[in-house]
Structure formats: structure tokens, C-alpha cells
Design a binder for these strands. Structure first.
Lengths: 230, 230
DNA sequence: GGTTGTGAAGTAATTCACAGCT
DNA sequence: AGCTGTGAATTACTTCACAACC
């Protein structure tokens, strides 16, 4: 009888806003590093490439943290955004697949920075087991369930070939992981309640190719007929 | 005097649709590999994780390629989507930055598949120059302009550390590249007419952390007070 | 004077629901 | 009978423009 689960709709922040908060956060950290104390929506918007009204509306969803006539205090805003994003606590991440991509991810500075901790690197390939990558020893995929439980992993990163991705995902989910970041070029199937985000190189390239083609067709030629293939 | 460039707005396909076409395309190729000849919007929607009405509307922007009562012919739809995305021609790609990420990208199968050709791998670090990666010899960054001109590069991929990204981007743009795919965690500045897409691991993690925190706050506790930190 | 926060207006994307074709 | 293609309705997001405040 339960109606078709209208999702407990975020009593809060629009998804589009959530996706921009990390961008603001990074820009703010840059300002902080340079010792800048306050910033206006106009300035912060410019450095992050958004419209200033949008930035103000985004921030207004978190609360009223600016000062009229002055702007936003950089450190305070960093704290508020971090808190909203859940970065004031540490999240354990497990990376499965230690090929070039997995290594790139493991060595990526962004992990080390506040908020994330790599709990384990796992792979099925015996030839990389025991390798040390980013200070961690690569473990066997069979230990996935143990690692998730023991290290309290909440985010699983899939950097395996496409063919293994769904299986790894299933194991993550079965072990209790509810957030997955997928680099394999497949659509993952997960039960409700599990969030999946995907990063897909070839999709990005194809989107660029589309626009590139548009530029070639449309502008350069100034051909009013455009579309026609012949 | 030119007004603030209201962008020659695509006389066509919504951006949200463009971003999904590659997903449909991949699913269709999977069906084709399995010898499946036709597919309904319902079925294709299910395997790509979208609503079937959305899928039909997306496809309707390309033309009327289905058959009522039957569905879509798989091969024909593959061809039409490929054509729309500009994949019936080959695009030359240059990758700058041959660390783990650059290597992962170079070896990524998605490139090889129809539509993209890696024209060059470039790096500033003398220690990797001349290395062979994915069958290509790594060249020096100073040859960027030559390579872009000679190989007719239309998409530049930036896989360098953050600090070098803007400079590499400027050189790409100066050399005539109008599409950039950026993996470095910085907001790139480009003139109008140049498309930039970014892929940013830490943004994805932070978005997941946000939702993870929501799940922890909201559901598990069933605490009606939620928000308050103490 | 300067800048935020936000209703109201405008634009884009999604979903519904069904006419129209096979 | 089955499935597409699409107007109409809905929902989400963006931008404008200005009152409120420092």
C-alpha cells in the first residue's frame, strides 16, 4: 500500500546547489591561503564562474552567513560549507581496482585533504597485491567485506574494468556501503537508498565532440541551411 | 557595444539531452553486440536508468526514428545518435600530463573506439619524455603548438597538476583548440567560444558525503530535530 | 555607498497522459 | 494491441531587481 515512494525529498538544499558548494569551497580555501578575510558574492562568483545572484541564492540555502555592505567572512563560510557538506567528519573510502586510474586516485591530493581517508586499496590481480601505493599496501578483493566492516567504509570507489564493476558494486552494497563513485563505463544497478555518481571519460569527450561539431557546422560556414547532410 | 553575447543558443538539442545521448549510445552498442535488433523506449530506458518518457523526448529531438507499435531499430539508432554527437568523424585529442592519470586516460579503451584518436601525449617532466604509453611516445610540452597544428587537434585534455592547468589551457586556446577536458582541480578561464568540461574527483566525493550525511542525520536516527549540531 | 537575501519573473527540464500510427 | 511522439502540466533552476541592512 505504501505509495510509490515520493522520496523523503530533501527538506533542503537543491541538488544543483549541492553540486556547486564544493567549487565555492575550493575557491574560498584559495582566498584563505592568500590571507584574504572577506569576499563579496560578486568576487567569489567571478572566480568560480557563476552568476552572483545564483551564488547568493545558493548560500542562502545554508543560512544567512553574509553581512550586507561587507560580504562573507572567508573562514566562517568555509566552516559552514564544510559542515553542510559533511566534511567536518572523516569519511572512509575504499578503492577497488589499482590500475593506473586507481593509482592516480590514491595519489590524488584531494583525498588527503580534510574529509576523506583512504581505508583500503583492493584488487583482484595477484600481480599488484602487496604493492605499496600512496603509503598503503594493496589488499585482495576478497577482503572487501572485512575492510568495509572494520574500517567503517562509507564510500566505495570503483576503478575496475567495466566487466567487474557491477559485481564489485553489489559486494559494496551487500556489505553496507551506501555511496558509490563509479569510474567504469557501465550503468550500475543499485537498490533505493544507495547513491551512485559516475565519472565517465568517454561521455565527456562525446559531449565535447557534439559542441565541436556544432561550432564547425554552424558558425564557420555561416551556412543558413545547416542541418542538411548533403 | 556588442551586447553580453546571449550565445547563439542551440537551435536544437537541450543540453540535458546531449549529456544523456552517450549513455543511450553505449547501451545500444551493448544490445547490438548481443545481436538484438529492436528495442522499446521502455526497455532502453530501464537499462540506462531513465524514465521512458524522457528517453522518447530525448530521441524525438534527433528526429522520428522509431516505429509505433514496434520500437527502435538498434543499428539505425546507433547511427543516428553517433551522427548527432559528431562521432562519424574522428576527433584528434592531445593529452597533457602523463602521470598516472594521463596514463590511465591514454590506455582507456573509450578513446580507441570510434570517434577519437590520441594525437599526442605531452609532458613537461624530462623523466617521462620518450616513454612509450599506449603505443605513443611522450613528447615535450614545448611541441604543443606544433602538434595542435599538424595533427589538427580539436580536443585538449589537461591531466596536469592544478598549478599548470591554466597555462596549458591558455596554450591550447592560443593554438586554436576550442574544446578542453580538464581533470585538474581548478576553474579554467577561457574566452567565449571555447567549451570546457571538468572532471573533478573531490567534487564528486563531496557530493556523496553530503548525501551520506543526510542519510545518517535524517533516516537512521529518525530524529525530528535533525539539523541542530548540539 | 555597498552588498546581502529574496520575492517575483523567466527559462529549462521532467513527467504525464493520450492521440496517432503500425 | 502495442509503442511512439508530443502537447500540456508540473517541477526545478536561474536570473532579475530591489528592499533591507551595515
Amino acid at each position: 500500500m505504501t505509495p510509490p515512494a515520493p522520496r523523503p525529498r530533501d527538506r533542503g538544499i537543491p541538488e544543483a546547489t549541492v553540486a556547486r558548494l564544493p567549487v565555492y569551497l575550493r575557491a574560498l580555501q584559495g582566498l584563505d591561503d592568500r590571507g584574504i578575510l572577506t569576499v563579496s558574492s560578486e568576487h567569489l562568483a567571478e572566480t568560480t564562474g557563476v552568476n552572483s545572484a545564483k551564488l547568493r541564492k545558493d548560500l542562502s540555502h545554508l543560512g544567512s552567513y553574509g553581512t550586507r555592505g561587507v560580504g562573507y567572512e572567508v573562514e566562517y563560510l568555509i566552516y559552514q560549507i564544510s559542515r553542510e557538506l559533511g566534511l567536518t567528519q572523516d569519511w572512509s573510502v575504499a578503492i577497488v581496482g589499482v590500475g593506473n586510474l586507481g593509482r592516480a586516485l590514491a595519489n590524488y591530493g584531494g583525498f588527503g585533504t580534510r574529509g576523506f581517508r583512504i581505508a583500503a586499496l583492493l584488487d583482484a590481480d595477484a600481480s599488484v597485491l602487496g604493492d605499496t601505493v600512496a603509503g598503503l599496501s594493496v589488499g585482495h578483493i576478497d577482503t572487501l567485506e572485512d575492510v568495509v566492516a572494520k574500517e567503517n567504509v562509507s564510500i566505495g570507489v570503483i576503478a575496475t574494468p567495466a566487466v567487474s564493476a557491477q559485481e564489485v558494486c553489489d559486494r559494496f552494497v551487500e556489505a553496507g556501503v551506501t555511496s558509490v563513485l563509479n569510474f567504469a563505463p557501465v550503468v550500475l544497478n543499485v537498490p533505493p537508498g544507495v547513491d551512485v555518481r559516475k565519472v565517465d571519460l568517454s561521455i565527456e569527450l562525446q559531449i565535447l565532440a557534439f559542441h565541436e561539431q556544432r561550432k564547425a557546422d554552424g558558425y564557420a560556414g555561416l551556412d543558413p541551411f545547416g542541418k542538411g547532410p548533403a
